[in-house]
Amino acid sequence: MNISKRSSNIKTSPVRKLIPYQEQAIKAGKKVYHFNIGQPDLPTPPEFFEFIANSEERTLKYAHSKGNLGLRQAMSKFYKENFNLDYTDEEILITAGGSEALLFVLTAIFDAGDEILISEPYYANYNSFFEMLQIKVNAFSAKAEDGFHLPPKEEILAKLTPNTKAILLTNPGNPTGTVYTEEELKIIGDIAKENNIYVISDEVYRLLSYDNRIATSMGSFPEYEENTVIIESISKTYSACGARIGAVVSKNKTFMKEVYKLCQSRLSVSSLDMIGAEGLYNTLKKDYFDQNRAIYEKRRDVIYSGLLNIDGVKVVKPEGAFYVMVTLPVDDSEKFAIWLLEHFDYEGETVMLTPAQGFYKTPDAGKKQVRISYCIEEDKIKKALTILEKGLKEYNNL
């Protein structure tokens, strides 16, 4: 039976590529510390479940393709109160997670063969959508020694072609943890406006930025509002990855009309999840976000200081999200990550890492790097770092 090239060209997610090795390690009796995946471990707020339990829904009908009005109004209020962003409920479309939001945004902008401009390293799962929609990727490099901040404007422009239809940013960054400055965002906004292209701003980690700063939204600049599209999600903000509630947010009416067609084509997202999400947006205020941010910031400090103390390891202090890009003293980070699961343990325990090659468009880039997620408790971070240090020593003595 035939399989489409469109499907077969999609590569396995590098975040999940090592799962078979992890499963074998667990079968062998090893305890595995998960440095590999950005699954928040903080409890989903009880308000999510309470709003669902107290709803008057008795028949789960199709919801509005735009998303429940109450949820869109709650998000509009949330944007105003927390970020001073003025988006009406008509400028918000609810999607099945940030992933569907991005898929719909890309589908509305790109034809096969069009090009997207992106800073590498970037979130590897974007590639699945690029392959699916036959979008060509042009990447400009952000360097570790610069904290993975954007290169000069001329380096970005050098990657721009007549076929470029949009620039995609993740702010705060996955996998880097970088938080872009207002000046950097204005550079991107100026490029987009001058060349009549879109800026797709993936802001799902916006409330997880550290050192007494809040990540600036691309929506903060009225001069770029026709160019700007924001990807939103409750997954990271509220520790609700399984709820699958995201959104497309934009003031560009023509663009939003096209995305709405795609929303209609899949009818609606989960009614119960939208009810729960509305409860989160309506009830949880600044104290909740401050508390969660403090927990992740403390973990960030623990993992950063611990990595600095391991011989040969190079690391840049992340500014947001819950990821850190690390350069290891190894020949090949994927080979090392597999070895940790297959052949190494310390007192019956090992560590699962995400090799960084999959976060780059440039061949062989990131070959000695890994992305580490610190979505685990501080004591587990410390244990995992001890295992990583001992693993590096043994691996390099082979």
Score class of each variant (00 low, 15 high):
T88G: 09
D379G: 14
E342D: 12
Y281W: 10
S271H: 14
H149P: 05
K382R: 13
N212S: 10
N174Q: 11
E115F: 02
Y210M: 05
A112K: 11
A112D: 06
E258A: 09
E203I: 09
L341W: 00
E278D: 08
S265E: 14
S141W: 01
Y395M: 12
A112W: 06
L398Y: 14
I387W: 00
N84Q: 14
S233P: 01
M218V: 13
P152E: 07
Y198R: 09
V137D: 02
F104D: 08
E182Q: 11
D379S: 15
K31F: 11
E183D: 11
N292G: 10
K298A: 07
L207Y: 11
L150V: 09
K186Q: 13
A215K: 01
A96W: 09
K165W: 01
Y198K: 04
P318L: 13
G29K: 03
H343V: 12
F129N: 07
M256L: 09
R293F: 02
L106T: 15
T176R: 01
D89G: 14
I214Q: 08
T386M: 03
N9A: 15
L103S: 10
E90N: 15
K236W: 07
I381R: 00
F48E: 04
F322I: 15
I200M: 00
D190C: 01
E226K: 10
A365H: 08
V315R: 05
A124R: 05
N84M: 07
F130K: 00
L150H: 13
V32D: 04
G67P: 02
I135M: 01
G279K: 01
N396E: 10
K153D: 08
G38S: 09
K286Q: 12
L42P: 13
Y62V: 14
S201L: 02
P43F: 02
V229Y: 00
P151H: 04
I116W: 00
V105C: 12
K390R: 13
S141K: 03
Y79K: 11
V32F: 00
A63Q: 12
I52T: 03
I245A: 06
L160G: 02
L168C: 09
V259R: 01
E378K: 07
C241I: 13
G67H: 00
F148L: 15
A166W: 08
T107Q: 12
N54I: 04
T283R: 08
L388D: 00
W339M: 03
P43H: 01
Y205A: 04
D332N: 05
K253Q: 14
A139L: 04
V204C: 10
V249N: 05
L307R: 01
I303M: 05
S235K: 02
A384T: 07
A240T: 08
V248G: 08
Q369Y: 04
Y224I: 07
D146V: 03
G391C: 08
K361M: 14
